[in-house]
């Protein structure tokens, strides 16, 4: 298998320059242990984890694939945009059903990239809730272990209740939102902007239909530019 190496790109992604050495997990583990300790301090702020050994290794499967999914979905969205740009170059609207399906699927790509990237950074940051950010001169002591950020007075049951509730709320709203989107997309532009629809029979009676739709001619002193 051939390995294609692009020099400097990882350094650019991590630090914004082309010379920084980006260290791997195996190099970082002993460095973290040396800088931030092998065990959590015996302090009550760490709750039942006080004094326990610190596992600096995040769930590698999640971070490895999370990063690749983020870049992959982002790349797909860009690629789909380029294809669409090329196919519409002469100002025509392509009639290929496959391109239309790709366009609809393309809506998902940025959301996929966002979700994957978010999970990747949040889980890759563990065991820190505020990751240490060492300056070139030494260790920046501004960091916080996740164990210290857990609210001691909040029970696991409460966390579970909120997780289930909010997931259910978003699921319900997702269904409503997608149904409305499909309905309005199928209806075309005039379904959302009825003022654009000229119904032939009405044309002679009402030459200037107002934004309120047929019969709703806009009074000169309209109070509401937009009405719920």
């Amino acid at each position: 298998m051939a390995l294609i190496e692009v020099p400097g790109i990882l350094s650019y992604l991590a630090k914004g320059d082309f010379t920084t050495e980006v260290k791997g997990v195996n190099t970082l583990l002993p460095e973290y242990q040396a800088n931030y300790g092998t065990h959590l301090p015996d302090n009550p702020i760490y709750g039942e984890r006080a004094g326990q050994e610190i596992d600096y290794l995040p769930v590698m499967e999640v971070t490895y694939w999370g990063f690749r999914m983020m870049i992959g979905f982002g790349g797909l969205a860009a690629l789909a945009a380029l294809v669409a740009l090329w196919l519409t170059r002469s100002g025509t609207v392509p009639s290929s059903p496959w391109l239309m399906r790709l366009a609809v699927l393309g809506i998902m790509a940025p959301f996929g990239a966002n979700a994957a990237g978010w999970i990747f950074t949040e889980m890759g940051r563990q065991p820190f809730v505020v990751a240490p950010n060492p300056d070139p001169n030494g260790i920046d002591q501004v960091f916080m272990f996740t164990a210290a950020a857990v609210s001691p007075g909040v029970s696991a049951g409460e966390l579970l209740a909120s997780l289930i509730t909010l997931t259910a709320v978003y699921a319900v709203l997702l269904v409503v939102e997608v149904k409305l989107l499909v309905k309005y997309v199928r209806g075309g532009v005039v379904s959302a902007m009825p003022e654009l629809a000229h119904i032939p029979a009405d044309e002679n009676e009402d030459a200037t239909p107002g934004p309120g739709g047929p019969g709703g001619a806009k009074p000169a002193d309209d109070v509401l530019a937009f009405a719920y």
Binding site: G188, V190, S191, P214
Partner: peptide, 13 residues
């Protein structure tokens, strides 16, 4: 208050 923002079916569109 303008008339209800009624949804026009795709036929009208």
């Amino acid at each position: 208050i303008p008339e209800a923002h009624s949804f026009l079916p795709a036929v009208a569109a």
